[in-house]
Amino acid sequence: MTGVELLNWARGPGLQIALVVFIVGVAIRFIEMWLLGKSPDFAEARGSAAAGGWRTLFTRSLPMPGALKRAPLVFLGGYVFHIGFFITFLFYAPHILFLRAVTGFSWPALPAYLIDVIGLVSIAALVAVLVHRLTDPVRRFLSRTGDYVAWAATFLPLLTGYFAYHRLVTDYTTMLALHVLSFELLLVLIPLTKLMHTFTFAVSRWYNGAIAGRKGVKV
């Protein structure tokens, strides 16, 4: 298969397949979780559950006091690659064109050289996070195959994107095709791995904050 054929497949049937798997998978996992419901709480509330829920949804993006000192790499690596990933994904001009074609919305892009730097920094952060996962006793102990699969699925779009941008390794067309395919792999793996937290983290944070908020505790 030539690079162009690969790119045409990735931009056509590949994208359709990936999107279908992604939507079906995410819908199943989200709905099967959502339908389980939560029993009503008869204890008299001290504070507002909803206020606590919404509050924690946002405040939990900041580390708990003291946490940065205890595990700096997890937090810094985590911040850098999450923020970096989303900036490169959402603010690189060609990506915006893709999102515009899919969603109908568009917004201003960041200059390509900036995206280049951010992408490289994100790649470095992901490598650091992987090394940490392989060497830190707790993370090594907790990790399952799926954690490494999820890591690779996050890493590959950044790496192939970087290679394509700099015309590295192979010709641009093939690398662009691999880049699109790696994004499709990521889409497919979101509902199949812990990457599902992309969606469920909001539910989790909300409940954590709501359970505490009801008791008048800010968490």
Binding site: L36, G37, K38, A67, A71, L142, S143, R144, F201, S204
Partner: peptide, 25 residues
């Protein structure tokens, strides 16, 4: 198992941060 429990399990990324909050660790 209820919605919060399922959501919590869905969300865990095995980052291991909870270990650092626990005095037993």
């Amino acid at each position: 198992v209820d919605r919060p429990t399922a959501s919590f399990f869905e969300s865990c990324v095995r980052c291991g941060m909870c270990a650092h909050a626990c005095l037993f660790y």
